[in-house]
Design a protein around this nucleic acid. Structure first.
Lengths: 335, 335
DNA sequence: GTGAAAGCGCTAACAT
DNA sequence: ATGTTAGCGCTTTCAC
């Protein structure tokens, strides 16, 4: 004896009204006489009726859910963005389908397609490399998409992020001002525009305006893991580096600990600045000076922007790119 | 001129077959002549047809999506579980609706209801306090639910976790073996069973079997934040503590740094063990000895269990509780 | 192996 | 203010 799912029709019959009326009260449509509303509400309560969102989605062509493609929830940078996204989503009554991609293009494309199949009303994409293939796939559907915490070099897709070039300039400038000439540039894959294009440009700009020659040997490309940073010191040391700009906090913690474990004095002999000001920067000793990014806000603003796009509230010809303010916080890892 | 969404019916017409047949090839039903299948597939490709998962969900009463209620994605403990959940979900072609609750019962109930309204096929609940109200709400629906990384003291809901009592016993025993008599018990809210019931019991058990009297003054209840740990040293110090068991890694990092910043030598003068063996334990100096929990696996196993429940593959009268093995890793924060 | 037809539970005109 | 009636795009018997 299966428990029968109870539908809008059951409520209508019990309340002796039409399903249209039930639908109206469920959806808060004001065109219902208070007495009727009350009666319907009672029946709904008595029958423990719950509107079926799937049926509603099919009929209305809106699912009030948005897809979120994330490289890895386990990474604080991304989970901070995700939290901002979810909070704003909840505020606007949306839910989030979260899918981990590991930054793998094939997975990203595949996720995108399942999300579209599930009729999400919009998509937030976090990823470090917006390939052409991906851009093509995006274009296939008319579902609004925004990039959170990343950049579309071609500026075809809406995105929310900070000015990476300027932020890195500020950080590296600090290092130069302390007299450092040989400053390492340490980051994840350079084929990710955020690293190879923007951050590197900021780094080079500062060197140039200070008359320091750019030295290819001081660019260290790794993955962004703690471990990769930890084992980097010997290489840094033999390159006679006295300071480092690092593009990721976990990586920076590794670099810092690797140096310290080798007996190097920080910041006296070696200065480090990092990029994301996540919790980690305060947990290590010495605490890490860092560019500050409003991670939560980047997520929140992305989602807010997406809600506008989903409601066609977006101004025509509005800028595709939202730049949020960055900052710099000096801690003990720099002089 | 809106781009018309193309449906199964369009494909049927173009391929000169019935929609039933199209449905069959889309769903991999073998009862289709190869030639027909080929023809249909061609049309699907040509028309760029994508099955509408919402319509499918309405007709089949399965959405292939599961709800995941999580206190905070930003917390590594939970995000690690979440990653395990999502990976296994993906493996079984499910998607995840992720909702942050902040451990707030009202939000949890509300999320639960939206998830059910969205007709999720199952739910994974992460939370530290399974209240009666929540249990009642769970019972209202027949949707399978499993608890990940937490315990239902009444054992009414399926759950996956480690043996917290035994794990804490092992950790505290280590501390006792090093000659410590005054060992602090530091954790988040004691009204969460995992803290106030299981962990505390393990702690007391060890004291008892070693003839050490339990001292209420050595129990420190805080929230689980880094900051709360950081400011705890003065209190610990005046309680003449020589070691501490801590129930959360962030909290433990705070405790450790607070002590170190006050000039205390770790582990010589003060030993610390923590509970979750997250990345943080290796990032701080000295590195933290810790209970090890297979976080990713707890998530993965929870999801696997849920898939079985969703397919009614679960053995009748099977144990409601899955206990995964814990471990203990000695690092530099203990002698 | 294939088709016809009846829903799935709801929204959204359109009437009244 | 309320009811009637088509769908929404698909799955799923049940025939053939």
């Amino acid at each position: 004896m299966e428990k029968q799912t109870i539908t809008i029709y059951d409520v209508a019959r019990e309340a002796a009204v039409s399903m249209a009326t039930v639908s109206r009260v469920v959806n808060g449509n004001p065109n219902v006489k208070p007495a009727t509303r009350k009666k319907v509400l009672e029946v709904i309560d008595r029958l423990d009726y719950r509107p079926n969102a799937v049926a509603r989605g099919l009929a209305s062509k809106k699912t009030t859910t948005v897809g979120v493609i994330i490289p890895d929830v386990t990474n604080v940078y991304f989970s901070s963005l995700a939290r901002g996204i979810d909070d704003v989503a909840a505020m606007y009554k949306y839910n989030i389908i979260l899918a981990n991609s590991d930054g793998n293009e094939q997975k990203e494309i595949q996720m995108l397609n399942t999300l579209l199949a599930k009729q999400v009303d919009g998509i937030i994409f976090m990823g470090n490399n917006l390939t052409d293939e991906l851009r093509t796939q995006f274009a296939r559907s008319k579902t609004p998409i925004v990039l959170a915490g990343s950049v579309d070099p071609k500026e075809e897709v809406e995105s929310v992020h900070i000015d990476y070039v300027a932020a890195v300039e500020e950080a590296v400038n600090d290092l130069v001002n302390h007299g450092n000439k040989r400053i390492a540039f340490i980051s994840g894959p350079l084929d990710e525009p955020i690293n190879g294009e923007y951050r590197l440009k900021g780094y080079k700009n500062v060197l140039k305006s200070n008359g320091i020659e750019f030295d290819e040997e001081l660019v260290f490309e790794t993955d962004s893991s703690y471990r990769s940073g930890e084992v980097l010191w010997p290489a840094l040391s033999s390159a006679n580096v006295t300071a480092a700009f690092v593009g990721d906090d976990e990586l920076a913690c590794g670099v810092l600990n690797g140096a310290k474990d080798a007996g190097v004095k920080v910041p006296e002999e070696f200065e480090v600045v990092t990029s994301n000001n996540s919790k980690l920067t305060e947990i290590v000793r010495p605490q890490l000076s860092s560019i500050t990014q409003p991670l939560y806000d980047i997520g929140a603003v992305s989602m807010r922007l997406l809600t506008k796009m989903m409601n066609n509230e977006e101004e025509e010809g509005a800028q595709k790119t939202v730049e949020l303010p960055y900052g710099f916080i000096k801690r003990a890892s720099t002089k």
